[in-house]
């Protein structure tokens, strides 16, 4: 526990990586995100929790502009990464997404080989100048995702042939291969068994050394285990945001308390 506190103190001294002000999201007539302000610290794990349908995924997708791919979705407000407005006209969402990687709820490796899955991002962004460099990037990414030892002998086997947990780590490797600064994870363990979940959680803890991680989770234990900061969403609003320890030990808002004690589902 003392260790954790030490880390948390560290985090507070970190700079702000992502800052959102007055974010509103509409899907047609549905008001999915209502005026959310939040500051996410660099090199830390921030967890979004809340009952399903409260807008966690929606807010997460604002950060890499994946909402742009949904026709009826409109995003308003101000989101900055390192002080740059990511909804500014000068920002190309395609390049933004190379800087802000994403891992989805269900592992979604491409129907390609393990190698090609990881190499795909670097290839389209021209990050490797030679085959050797590409090999290095692939190996480094797979190591970072803690799956290198399991797949190093079958890099050219289809990625879809791996187990669920391995597929998810492959997707993490794929996301870190473009050398992003931020990693967004939308319930990355909800399709996995407990052992695979434990492996991913351990991995997330190491990813914090290099990346700013934002993770959506429906498991409060998971939020408590992996995150330093926690944001609780309810009905599209950000109800409470603070150090994970504080949120779980003495929540200030009654809705947060009801949720973490299991009264709001």
């Amino acid at each position: 526990m003392d260790d954790l506190r030490a880390i948390n103190c560290d985090v507070d001294t970190n700079a702000t990586k992502i800052s959102a002000r007055g974010v509103q999201v509409h899907y047609g007539d549905t008001h999915a995100i209502k005026d959310v302000d939040v500051d996410i610290k660099e090199r830390s794990v921030t967890a979004f929790i809340g009952p399903s349908g409260c807008g966690k995924s929606t807010f997460l997708r604002c950060i890499n502009r994946m909402n742009d791919t949904i026709d009826i979705c409109r995003v308003a407000g101000d989101i900055r990464i390192d002080g740059d407005d990511i909804y500014d006209r000068s920002i190309d969402p395609v390049q933004l997404r190379a800087r802000v990687g994403m891992v989805f709820q269900k592992p979604n490796p491409f129907p390609k080989s393990i190698y090609d899955n990881v190499a795909y991002g670097p290839k389209i962004h021209g990050l490797a100048r030679s085959r050797v460099e590409m090999d290095e990037i692939v190996e480094r990414s797979l190591r970072r995702a803690a799956i290198w030892d399991e797949v190093k002998d079958r890099l050219h086997a289809p990625g879809t042939g791996l187990s669920g947990g391995q597929q998810q780590r492959l997707c993490i490797a794929r996301a870190v291969a473009t050398d992003p600064e931020v990693l967004l994870m939308d319930e990355p363990c909800s399709a996995l068994d407990p052992i695979a979940t434990a492996q991913i959680e351990e991995l997330i803890d190491t990813l914090r050394e290099k990346y700013t991680v934002v993770i959506v989770t429906h498991s409060m234990q998971q939020a408590a285990r992996v995150s330093q900061k926690t944001a609780f969403f309810h009905l599209g609003s950000l109800v409470e945001y603070g150090d994970t320890d504080d949120i779980f030990t003495n929540p200030r808002d009654s809705r947060t308390e009801s949720y973490i004690s299991g009264r709001i589902g």
């Binding site: 890499n64 994946m66 791919t69 395609v94 390049q95 933004l96 997404r97 190379a98 990687g101 994403m102 989805f104 269900k106 979604n108 490796p109 491409f110 129907p111 795909y120 991002g121 389209i124 962004h125 997707c171 794929r174 996301a175 473009t178």
Partner: peptide, 22 residues
């Protein structure tokens, strides 16, 4: 599956790259 397309877009692939490569 839509997940395939989201995966490519989230890596920063353009729509053309997504269709052709994935």
């Amino acid at each position: 599956p839509r997940a395939m397309r989201d995966g490519a877009l989230a890596l920063g692939a353009t729509r053309a790259e997504t269709v052709l490569n994935v």
